[in-house]
């Protein structure tokens, strides 16, 4: 278990949802857990949407000051330095989508690399139109690495089709993740699956997750 876990990937791959679930799982094993939202490109669906449940469970939440507000101001709070400089707690970092989102990581990268106790996870959803193939995913991976300044160390297979996700979708994602793993030489850390669907699966390495939902999501 590394002190810092980062979730990055193509936008819409499910980074935020995964980061929130991962932080909650981490809290069950460790006293001090902080989740930090470094996403300055996504205006609507954010870590802060889950702030209430996270804080209730004793997880510290650090978000851009203007997240979920009406202001389009991509500024990160000073307290984010505390996440990479103070090493007495486990940290989960939710990075913005694509290379554009990962640029914000660059200023914290030297601290993370110096400490050298991190897992940089590439979140893969092969049902997204611009990452349908392992080759396309590698392209996105390289773009993010060069923007964020931290190399990926693992892959999370988060392949899903929203509410239409089924075993076949997961299977397709698993196969493509294995191919991606072969292409880039990184391990698959887990396959994340919505918890009700996860119950019926006999796949190895499943990380059951809860979905962030909004009431107009019919």
């Amino acid at each position: 278990m590394h002190r810092v876990t980062l979730f990055a990937g193509h936008y819409g791959s499910g980074k935020t949802n995964l980061a929130v679930n991962y932080a909650r799982a981490l809290k069950k094993e460790h006293e001090r857990v902080v989740i930090a939202d470094l996403d300055i490109v996504n205006p609507y669906f954010r870590t802060k949407d889950s702030a209430e449940v996270l804080e209730r469970e004793g997880i510290e939440v650090i978000s851009p000051e203007f997240a979920n507000s009406n202001v389009d101001l991509p500024a990160l709070p000073a307290s984010l330095y505390g996440v990479v400089q103070r090493r007495d707690r486990y940290a989960v970092l939710d990075i913005g989508g694509d290379d554009r989102g990962a640029y914000a990581l660059g200023r914290y990268a030297p601290y993370i690399l110096e400490e050298n106790d991190f897992e940089m996870i590439f979140v893969a959803n092969f049902m997204r139109p611009l990452t349908r193939t392992p080759e396309e995913a590698v392209e996105v991976m390289r773009e993010i690495e060069s923007a964020g300044g931290i190399p990926f160390t693992a892959i999370a297979n988060n392949t899903n089709l929203g509410r239409l996700t089924d075993a076949a979708v997961i299977r397709e994602g698993t196969e493509k993740s294995r191919e991606l793993s072969r292409l880039c030489g990184l391990k698959i850390i887990f396959t994340s699956v919505e918890k009700n669907l996860a119950r019926g699966l006999d796949t190895d390495g499943v990380f059951p997750i809860e979905l962030q939902k909004k009431y107009y999501d019919l």
Partner: peptide
């Protein structure tokens, strides 16, 4: 089927 954002769906 693929999973798309509304804005992406317009563009595609």
């Amino acid at each position: 089927k693929v999973l798309m954002k509304g804005n992406e769906a317009i563009a595609e």
